[in-house]
Every structure is written in C-alpha cells, then in structure tokens.
Design a protein around this nucleic acid. Structure first.
Length: 264
DNA sequence: TTCCAGGCGTATC
DNA sequence: GATACGCATGGA
C-alpha cells in the first residue's frame, strides 16, 4: 500500500475503493457526504474526513498511528479486492455486479457498533436507521460503549424513537454487561456457534447475526439474507452460490446487494 | 389513506 | 419446520 504524509493529512493511493459505493451502501450508518467527493464519519468515536482526489484519497488531519491502526483495517486496505473480483467474475451475474460497483469494500467495524446498528436496521429504512443511531450518539455524546448503557430500559431509549427495537437494544446491552455474551471472546469461535450465541439476544435473528459477523467480526463467509439477497438468490442462484464463491460469499453478497438495489 | 422499510417474536398447524 | 401476523415510526 502506498501512502505519504502531507501536512496533517495522509494521501493514499489504492485501487478498488469508491467512497460512495463503500460508505453509502447500507453497511455503516454514520458517514455523511460533506462535499462532492468528501465524507465525514466515525469508527466508534474516532472521527475522519476523507475525500477522493484525482489520483489518491485524502485522509484529513490523521496521524500515521491512527491511519495504520484504525483506518487501514477499517477500510480493509490490506485485502486484494482486484484478486477477489477476478475470482468472483468467473460467474456471470457476479461479473456484472463487480463491474457495476467494483469500488465496494467491506468495512471492518467494531463488533458492538455493528451488532447494535443492525438490530436497529430490522424492518427499517436507511435514513431512519441513521436517524435513530444519530439520536443515540446525541444522547451519549458519541457512540456509547455498551458499558455506558448499563442498566438501560426500553423507556430510557424512548428519545431514539426506535419503536419496538428499543427493547431489543436493551436486551443486547443487558447480555453484554452481564457477561452472558463477550463479543471479544465469541468472535474467535466457528461461525455457526457465534450465530447461535448472537441469536439468543432478543431481536437478533439470522440476518442481524450475519450482519454483525460480516461487518463486525469480518466473517466474509457470512451472507446476510435480507429481502434483496433473497431476490438475488432466487433469480441467479436457485441452488446456492458456486463452490468457488463461498470463501468470499460475504463480499459477493455486498456487490450483488448493491447491484440489485440500485443497478437493475 | 395505505404501503413499505437490509426482520424478528409469537402463535398455530 | 413452515407459514401467517403484528410490530413503532416515518416517508412516499
């Protein structure tokens, strides 16, 4: 990876990254476009303004330490997406999806933030998901750690206007604080076991669990089955993904999801 | 007004 | 295990 420091900024040259496709595609909910090709957002409470310039990306006011330890992993910059797209493009539908939105990357988010965000996402639309998470951050002065929310009740969460999801958030917070579920421990277990444990949380079913694993624990074999992906599978893969897709199924899912939602 | 949104819990068979 | 139905809220 090629990057240089310039003033307080870091300039990065990298292929396979499009900010619109990556930051505004429904995998993270705290990025806002602040200019034509500029976004502002957070990884937990580490802020970033990032913009696309002619031949590089500008990570504004970022020290090298934060860039290396936070943003390189977050944007999954060590993964060779050109190679993955080459492999996936053996399949005809995926070939089109990769060509349509080849600048998508999986954002490696914090496991708690991803879990909480996707509990909120259920039966909901993206603007409102962003609104609820925004109000959560207002309430706590940033994205709260689950420890900050210890003892919270659904009524306490009323200002979020999260509807029936408030009780799910409260149950999640209770299980994390009670030590019943330790995300940093279970993230090392086999995928099936993690899914089973996450689904003991009220309001966490297969889809939310897979989102928490794909975006929060980088399980790129997880394919969250929402309404859009069900349509994709029905239309293109009635017998499931081909074998060679499976190791990257979560990434394939992201290309196909975006293609189905906005491309066709 | 009705429908829908990156689903899930519950009841019922 | 499969299938219906309700669910908070808000925008179209």
């Amino acid at each position: 990876m090629e990057y240089i420091k310039q003033g307080g900024d870091i300039l990065l040259k990298t292929p396979d990254l499009d900010l619109d496709e990556t930051l505004d595609c429904g995998q993270a909910f705290r990025w806002e476009r602040t200019g034509g090709k500029e976004y502002h957002g957070f990884m937990l409470n580490t802020p970033l303004t990032v913009s696309a310039e002619k031949d590089f990306f500008r990570f504004c006011e970022t020290d090298e330490d934060t860039f290396v330890n936070v943003w390189i992993p977050y944007f999954d910059l060590e993964t060779d997406y050109s190679e993955i797209k080459r492999i996936l493009s053996e399949d005809s539908a995926l070939s089109k999806a990769c060509a349509y939105a080849g600048g998508i990357r999986i954002l490696r988010q914090d496991s708690w933030e991803a879990l909480c965000s996707f509990i909120i996402s259920q039966n909901n639309n993206i603007p409102r998901i962003k609104g609820i998470i925004g109000r959560l951050c207002e309430m706590y002065g940033g994205f709260p750690d689950f420890k900050d929310m210890n003892g919270i009740s659904p009524d306490d969460l009323a200002p979020l206007r999260a509807g029936f999801r408030a009780k799910y958030i409260a149950d999640c917070v209770r299980k994390l604080n009670g030590g019943e579920i330790i995300l940093e421990d279970i993230r090392n277990l086999p995928t099936e076991e993690i899914r089973k444990i996450l689904m003991t949380i009220k309001g966490v079913g297969p889809k939310v669990a897979d989102c928490a694993m794909l975006y929060g624990m980088y399980r790129i074999d997880c394919v969250p089955m929402d309404v859009w992906m069900k349509r994709v599978m029905e239309q293109f893969y009635p017998n499931g993904f081909p074998e060679f897709v499976l190791p990257y199924a979560g990434i394939a899912q992201q290309y196909l999801f975006h293609y189905m939602r906005t491309g066709t």
